[in-house]
């Protein structure tokens, strides 16, 4: 590895080239996959709604790499990135957005409910704040059974103003649960500037002290920073030292959802944040650390190829059989409510 040629960088390198390449790979693949999702919308190949994480890739990548197999992710309707970051194949994610049989839930859930239990993705929840208490419950199970997994719960800045956020934080602290709460502060709660409707400047960070937690506000566009913070919080949880609340500053490059062109943003804001694009930052970082440029280029080529393959697989996939309409309403697989 070419790091040897840069002694200063290698001395300070606590992350190392292999993990850096993995952080970059995830960010590139999420970016390419989200862009493809957007294109497929424009082609009317994806129905319903969708909430992209363009610009927020570093958070999903940083946590995705820091989490171990068996750790649990609890996501929101903006959950494509976090689902991919746990190793879910692109075609299963895109296929669910396209509501095809190949999708993670064979089209029964759609883009807002991505779930893959085998990858530890315990659901994507579309009612704001609902999954924070649910993540507490998963963490309680681990604590009660002596299992060593950590539950990580992702949510947006708007979530910090709903009751379930506060109930969950109090709960997690009093029971010292192995859960990590990750606020992706992209400045806007749907179409409204979060600062206009929130009592404190840091929507998550400034609430932490109310629950006896340290204020942690980080650059959510720098995957190294996210990764280091995630490792520390996950280790703390795994060691039985209780929960963390982490606010990651970031920005979504697209609107809130498919229907939103983001016209409420002041001129120049998007451009300023594009300068801080997590992929741009990270590619530069790799160069600073003299990570093999050929490997970096190979990741970019391979990502594009994977997106193409996944897209074709999804397009070729049929819709799910109509029998699914009434399947799995109850745990016996059926829907019978009477005899």
């Amino acid at each position: 590895m070419s790091l040897r040629s840069n002694p200063v960088a290698s001395l300070n390198d606590d992350i190392g080239p292999n993990i850096r390449l993995e952080l970059y790979r995830l960010q590139v693949e999420i970016r390419d996959c989200e862009k493809r999702a957007y294109d497929l919308f424009l082609q009317n190949m994806i129905k319903g709604t969708s909430h992209l994480s363009l610009g927020q890739e570093a958070i999903a990548a940083g946590f995705g790499v820091a989490m171990k197999k068996g750790d649990k992710s609890f996501c929101t309707y903006r959950g494509h990135a976090h689902t991919l970051a746990r190793g879910v194949p692109m075609e299963a994610m895109l296929g669910e957005l396209m509501l095809r049989d190949i999708g993670l839930m064979r089209g029964k859930g759609g883009s807002m409910h991505l779930t893959s239990v085998e990858h530890g993705v315990m659901g994507s929840y579309a009612i704001i704040g609902a999954h924070l208490p649910i993540a507490c419950g998963s963490a309680w199970r681990a604590q009660y059974l002596g299992e060593k997994d950590v539950s990580v719960c992702f949510f947006g800045d708007g979530t910090t103003n709903i009751g379930a956020f506060h109930e969950a934080l109090n709960f997690a602290v009093i029971w010292k649960l192995p859960v990590v709460f990750v606020c992706e502060n992209n400045l806007y709660m749907e179409y409204t500037l979060n600062a206009d409707v929130t009592a404190v400047p840091s929507p998550a960070g400034d609430r932490a002290s109310a629950y006896g937690l340290p204020k942690i506000v980080i650059d959510g566009n720098d995957a190294d920073v996210v990764y280091r913070t995630a490792m520390a919080a996950i280790e703390k949880a795994r060691n039985g030292e209780g929960p963390s609340l982490i606010e990651c500053l970031t920005y979504r490059h697209s609107g809130h959802s498919r229907a939103d062109p983001g016209k409420y943003r002041p001129p120049g804001e998007l451009e300023r944040w594009l300068e801080k694009d997590p992929l741009k930052i990270y590619k530069q970082r790799l160069a600073e650390f003299n990570v093999d440029a050929a490997q970096v280029a190979a990741i970019e080529v391979e990502s594009k190829r994977k997106v193409e393959v996944a897209t074709e697989l999804c397009k070729a996939s049929p819709s799910a059989p109509v029998e699914l309409l009434t399947a799995d309403v109850y745990a016996d697989g059926g829907w019978a409510w009477r005899n």
Partner: peptide
């Protein structure tokens, strides 16, 4: 905290309790 009670019950149920 009724939301936390039911949410925690659900998360625990989903993962084995």
């Amino acid at each position: 905290s009724e939301q936390a009670i039911l949410g925690a019950a659900m998360g625990a149920a989903m993962t084995g309790l």
